[in-house]
Amino acid sequence: MFPIVLPQLALTFPNLDPILFQIGPIAIRWYSLSYIVGIVLGWLYAKSIVRNNRLWGGQSPITDIDMDDFMLWATIGTVLGGRFGYVFFYDFAGFMADPVSIFQIWQGGMSFHGGFLGVTIAMILFARARKIPVWSLFDVIATVVPIGLGLGRVANFINGELWGRVSDAPWAMAFPTGGPQPRHPSQLYEAALEGALLLAVLFIAVYSFKALHRPRLATGIFVGGYGIARTIVEFFREPDAHLGYLFGDWFTMGMLLSLPMVLIGLVLILSARKVEYLAPETDHA
């Protein structure tokens, strides 16, 4: 039985312009801005973590300069992985029919799972090049990634895309591209769970429970936490029209890609072991 939906009770979508401002042919979009701000804030947060030897129980194995240099690697890995992940996971046939649209990133269409794979490859290559413990780099990046995730989902909401399923919840709203029926603002659910909540959990784990003393722990919390959060939201999010439901009338591609993350996260958490980093050098009189 379908829920009774009362469109007249739906909240009004704010209908913000996806373009923040435009100077001639150059348009700055909320979507692009969310990536830029997320990367910059994540970089600053990561630098504060690697500077704090107390969090490591000794000398941090990563330097400020490492974080500065990795910013470019992270940007390339995130953007390329996110875009090509969306192409292959969500609309391969559509993009093959119009290959030029693959490069029109400003139109939206980024996959977290693809971006996750892209930045993971970038981290492995960078860590090997700099002789950095790869799990330590994973842990730092995992701690700051929810900043970008949260901002990205807010940008999805402003764009009026990736809206939720039809709902009679009092906070449901009718999106311009979602028809007249009110829907869950699932983008904001994701911003809250994958962004704010996961960021807070990782902050507490790192600053109060010394997660960086145990390589893989922060990474496991992030990977498993994201998988759980995304799986929950998928029950409220409308699946992509060209994919629909994979099994029955409830299982989605988002769930298929997220459930393995829960298992991987659990394995990482259980396998994390405490290590002793070198004590920071001190000057002697």
Rank of each mutant, 00 (worst) to 15 (best):
A10R: 03
P182L: 04
S186R: 04
H242Y: 02
D68T: 10
A191M: 13
H213A: 04
S32T: 14
S101W: 00
K47N: 11
G244D: 13
L266S: 14
S34V: 11
G265A: 11
V262A: 02
I49K: 02
A241G: 00
P25K: 07
H213S: 06
T78W: 03
R216A: 12
P260F: 04
E194N: 11
T12R: 12
S136E: 13
V275H: 03
A127F: 02
L151G: 07
R83L: 06
F21H: 08
F92D: 05
T75A: 15
G94Y: 07
W30T: 05
G94R: 09
I264Q: 01
A241K: 13
H242C: 11
V166S: 06
V206M: 11
F13D: 15
S101C: 01
I204A: 15
V166N: 04
K274E: 15
A97H: 08
N156A: 10
W250R: 12
D249A: 09
W135N: 14
F70C: 03
I228A: 09
N52F: 00
L162M: 14
S34G: 06
D69C: 00
R128C: 05
P280Y: 04
G265M: 07
E238V: 00
A272W: 01
T177H: 13
G148A: 10
L257Y: 02
N53H: 14
L268R: 01
V166E: 15
L266P: 05
G224E: 10
G118M: 05
S136H: 08
S258K: 07
V140G: 08
L20Q: 06
R130E: 10
W43G: 07
Q187I: 06
G254P: 10
L212C: 02
L149H: 15
I121T: 09
P7K: 06
D91L: 00
T143D: 05
V100R: 12
I36H: 01
F203D: 10
G82P: 07
Q107V: 00
I147K: 06
L202F: 11
W250C: 02
Y189S: 09
G254Q: 10
L263A: 15
S271T: 15
A172H: 03
Q104V: 11
V201W: 02
R273S: 13
A93N: 12
K131S: 15
T120H: 01
L11M: 14
V5A: 04
V40W: 10
S48D: 15
W43E: 09
L217N: 05
P170R: 00
R183Q: 12
